[in-house]
Structure formats: structure tokens, C-alpha cells
């Protein structure tokens, strides 16, 4: 079997082609091959959630995805979500609530939180907590993050009703 695999995929709306080492997980691929350093690794065991990115529309643990398996896939990272403006309100809420301190978990947390906005627009505080329960944050104690997500859910509901 090959130890280098040719892949062509879409990252943040741009098509990229690379020949990748099979030892690379998605995050090391993004960071070292594409210079997209917004996603972080922190445990590389799939536990902490710092590496959460969007793959084919769903949040995944980037450290538990082989880069070699990504031919034809669509990957979105915090850089892409920022540029597209899709989660601008969520990012603004994080800033307003100080829901990011050291910021290391933040890109992964935002990708997970963005999932709540589309999958569970009526989520309660408890449901928000449950949904982000796989994303470790050592700084905030989580409350500001829950507040920020709750703020955005409310404002999006309001703007939809209007």
C-alpha cells in the first residue's frame, strides 16, 4: 500500500491538490501543508476538541481523520468560516462576552457552537452545555461561552421572526 496519497479536496472554498504522507492527520495537513494554523492540536487522542473542524458539513475531530482519506472532501476551518461571515455574529458574541481567554480552544469551540446554531436553534442552556461538552476550555469555566451561544440563538430567532 502507498505511504503517499494524492488528494484533491476543497478547503474553505478553494480547491487544493497535494501528495500527502499517510501519517498526517487532517490538522497537521492543514497546519503544515496549507498554513492554516487556526485549528489546533492539543491531545491528538480525539478527547479535547481543540482540533474540531468541519468536514463535509459536519464538525469532526481533525486529529481523528486521515489526510490521505480526504480526496473529494470539503473542509471548512475557522479561517474559512471567518472569511465567509457565516459565524460573524457568534464571533462577535464571543468577543463581547469574553468567551475566549487564551483562545487556544476557541476555533474548535466555535465550529462546535456553529453546529448548535443550525442543528438546535431552540437549544436551552443545558443543551448548549451538552453540545459543547466535548470541547475542553481551561480558561473560561464555560459560562461565558454558553452565554455567547445563547445570545446568538436568541438574536437569530428574533431576526427570523421579524
Amino acid at each position: 500500500m502507498n505511504r503517499r496519497i494524492d488528494i484533491t479536496l476543497t478547503v474553505n472554498g478553494e480547491r487544493v491538490s497535494r501528495s500527502v504522507d499517510t501519517r498526517l492527520h487532517l490538522i497537521d495537513f492543514l497546519r503544515t501543508e496549507l498554513g492554516l494554523t487556526g485549528a489546533h492540536t492539543a491531545c491528538e487522542h480525539g478527547v479535547c476538541g481543540a482540533c474540531t473542524v468541519r468536514l463535509d458539513g459536519d464538525p469532526v475531530r481533525g486529529c481523528l481523520v486521515m489526510a490521505a482519506s480526504l480526496d473529494g472532501s470539503v473542509v471548512e476551518t475557522i479561517e474559512g468560516l471567518s472569511d465567509s461571515g457565516e459565524i460573524r455574529d457568534l464571533q462577535e458574541a464571543f468577543v463581547a462576552r469574553n468567551a475566549a481567554q487564551c483562545g487556544y480552544c476557541t476555533p474548535g469551540m466555535l465550529v462546535t457552537a456553529a453546529d448548535i446554531l443550525t442543528q438546535a436553534p431552540n437549544a436551552s442552556r443545558e443543551e448548549i452545555r451538552e453540545h459543547i461538552s466535548g470541547n475542553y476550555c481551561r480558561c473560561t469555566g464555560y459560562q461565558a461561552i454558553v452565554d455567547a451561544v445563547e445570545d446568538v440563538l436568541k438574536s437569530r430567532r428574533k431576526s427570523e421572526a421579524a
Binding site: M1, N2, R3, T22, R23, H25, D28, E44, M66, S69
Partner: peptide, 11 residues
Amino acid sequence: MKWPAMGYARV
């Protein structure tokens, strides 16, 4: 730790 060297094939 980083993954060990290994092959990959998709079927």
C-alpha cells in the same frame, strides 16, 4: 505522538 508510518488504500 505522531502516527507510525503505514500504508493506506481506499476501496
